[in-house]
Structure formats: C-alpha cells, structure tokens
Design a protein around this nucleic acid. Structure first.
Lengths: 204, 204
DNA sequence: GCATACTTCAATGCATACGTTAACGGACGC
DNA sequence: GCGTCCGTTAACGTATGCATTGAAGTATGC
C-alpha cells in the first residue's frame, strides 16, 4: 500500500485502525509496522501510531550514495562469478524488455524492466546481504522514481548503459562492469536529483 | 546474548523456551526474533524455533565486501562535511584509546576503541541509512573479530591507518579519506580471512 | 488572561487464549 | 523387515484481554 501510494507520505495510522481496515487483529499489524519501521518506510511513535515517511531530497541523496557504493560492487562480483549465459537470462530479458519499452515509449513497462534488471543483478551477485541492502533502499526510492517517470526525457541513455553493463558482465570483466555501473548510477542519480529540484518536489 | 556468545552459533531455541528463560511472554520474544532474523543473526523456521546462524568464511567475505563498499563512502562523506574539530572528538578519543591500548598490549581495549572509531565514523557521516547498514553487518562479524582478537599480531598497522584516516577527515580531504579507508578495510579483511583459514575456523 | 495541576481516556506493550498445522511416533499393510 | 498411512501433539500465528502510560482537555489559582 505504501509503495503504491495508497498510503501517501505523511499518512498516520493507529494499530487498531489498520487492523479494522485490513480485517485482522492488531498483532500482525504490529509486526508489519515494526518491520516497515526497520525498512525505513514508516516511523512508529508510541501513542501516535505509524507515520508514512516522506522522502526528502536529502533522503534521495543518501539513498543514491548507498546505491552508488553497493551496486557497482554487485556488478563486479557478478562479472567475476563467470556464470554460464543461461543463468544471466533474467538480465538479458530485462535488457530486451527495456529496449522494447523504449521503442514503444512505454514508460511504465520501462520502469518495470529497469527494476527487473537491478533486482536481477543483485540477486545474482552471490552476496545475499548486499542484495538485501540494495533492495531496501531501492524500495525507499520507489515512489520518487514513479513520480518522476513521466517528467524525465525518454531514458535512451540509461537503456544503452544497461546493455553495456550487461556485455561487461557476460564477458566476465569485473572492473568494467563496476565502473560502468558506477557511472550509470551517478548519472541517473544526478539526473533524478536535478529533476526533483527543478520540479519543486521537495518531498515525495 | 548472541553477540556475547551466550547463545553460540547453531543454538536452537523455541519461542516458549526463551520466554520462560527471560521471564516474559512469547510476544516480545517473537518480536525480537523477527528483528534478529531481519538483522541476519538468526534464522526462524516455523515449528523449529530460531537458530543462531553460524558465520562461514564465505559470509565473512560477503560482509567485508559490503563494508569495503560502504565505509570508504562514509569516510569521504564525513571528510566533505567539514565538521568543526569538537564534533570529531569521538574519533579523536577513539584513536588515542587505540594507541594507548596498543602500547599496553591490551587487545580487548583495542577492540573496543576500534569499534568506537568505526561506529563513530558512520554515525557522523550524515547518512543514516548507510550508518545503519554498516552497523548491521558489523554486528554480524562481531563474534569473528572477538575470536580472532588473540590470534592476530598486535594491530600496529591498523592503529596507524586509523590515525591517517582521522587526519584526512580533519583536513576535509574526501578522496584521501575514502582511499585510505578502502585500503584499511581491504588489508584488514584479507588479514582476517587468511587468519580464519589458517586457524581452521571454518565456522564462527 | 495565562500558566499549572489534575483528570480522563485512548493507545500501547505485554500477557494469555485458541484454532491450525506440520512434525513425530506408532500401527498397519506389503 | 520395510515403507506408508494416520493419529497425536506441540509449536506457531493470530486473536483478545488487561494494566500502564502519556497526551489532551478542563478546572483552578494567580
């Protein structure tokens, strides 16, 4: 519900309210709230329930700093694993889906393929902790990506960068994969950041 | 209890057992178990309770890959913040405590100061998410550090490296801080790894 | 009129209760 | 004797109950 913006940032909900809304008791609601708090999506303040956290521009900067640190490492690790081609199939198909979506100017499909590429990459890198951490901050930035999806120019550069990273990984070239990914992430980050600034969306 | 090895790796405990042991009901135990599971310290398997996860050599490699990605970034961010000297006091005193402990050959005190330095650094870097992630994997490696503390030579090199990082941060030199930290982390990681291998401690 | 102390009450954190489910042991068939 | 099916039971997931706590509103004194 939070990722789909059914509970927009700033929303406050008490345990009992959500229990009633979702037709269960307070116990599972409570467990979910504690988990969402640890995942950084909500703040739980006793007596006031949980509040869906807005994501500020500063938060986005923090998130992108984490992604810029972790994801290139994941690309490097994956390249060095030297997996057979068939195990890289998820990345291949994500690349192709991205290129098809770009040709059709279908932004939602592009975003979905982008997500598949990134989650596929960290899933395959062999480091579960790293993968979980990337997915955690990735989810936190989900709303921002969705909001800016239609504001940005068609992601032609980004699509090509994914393909280049894919090639480096398939070739087992860890250094290239890492550096290409770092550049990709940095360009995407600054682009998103300036887009947010220009559009006056200080809070997402 | 897990960090202090009061519940050694491999230990299995049911919710009800721990509730009895700790003198409370299942509810808070359950909440703690779910949190520890998310933190990667235990595995919860229905009908078998939680199991304290051992940390394998491969896990240590994963952990150090994460640390090597995140901590240098934290050092860079902190250096670029250009904090006044008094706000860097925790790092200064950690450095001094480390040097004193080294002179006294007091390994436990050294480990404590080392921990203070690293947690102080990520705390001050200004990126809460990054800090939380570092502390999470840091805790996972806690047992391994404690077990190897007395097996390694006196950490003279490490102590000097901390001081150098400290100087770079105080000077506001982000690039140096990042690279010095990366080298520090990499050297420490390979040292720990080979120590574990040599000592035959495949599981910690 | 404003600040302070008190009262009230709602939300929480934990304890307990209950129905469901799957793991273990025994019985039965082969 | 071995494999399979079934019953028992213990552990869990969720529901509910209860005491505690702190926030909001009210009354009182200055």
């Amino acid at each position: 519900m939070i990722l789909d913006n059914a509970l927009p940032p700033g929303t406050q909900r008490l345990e009992a309210e959500l229990a009633l809304e979702l037709g269960c008791s307070r116990t599972p609601i409570r467990e979910a709230m504690l988990r969402l708090e640890r995942d950084g999506l909500v703040a739980v303040t006793p007596r006031h329930g949980m509040r869906v956290l807005p994501v500020s521009l500063a938060d986005m900067r923090d998130i992108y700093d984490v992604l810029e640190s972790l994801e290139p490492k994941a690309a490097e690790l994956l390249a060095r694993r030297g997996l057979p081609a068939d195990e890289l199939a998820p990345l291949h198909s994500a690349c192709e889906a991205m290129e098809a979506a770009l040709a059709n100017e279908d932004r939602p499909a592009w975003a979905k393929a982008d997500e598949a590429f990134h989650s596929g990459l960290v899933d395959l890198c062999g480091n579960r902790r790293l993968a979980a951490m990337v997915m955690q901050v990735w989810d936190q930035a989900h709303r921002a990506r969705m909001l800016t999806l239609n504001l940005r120019p068609l992601p032609a550069a980004s699509t090509a960068e994914h393909r280049a990273i894919m090639v480096a990984i398939a070739a087992g070239d860890g250094d290239s994969a890492r550096e290409l990914y770092r550049l990709h992430r940095r360009r995407g980050g600054t682009e998103l950041m300036s887009l947010i600034e220009r559009s006056g969306l200080a809070w997402l």
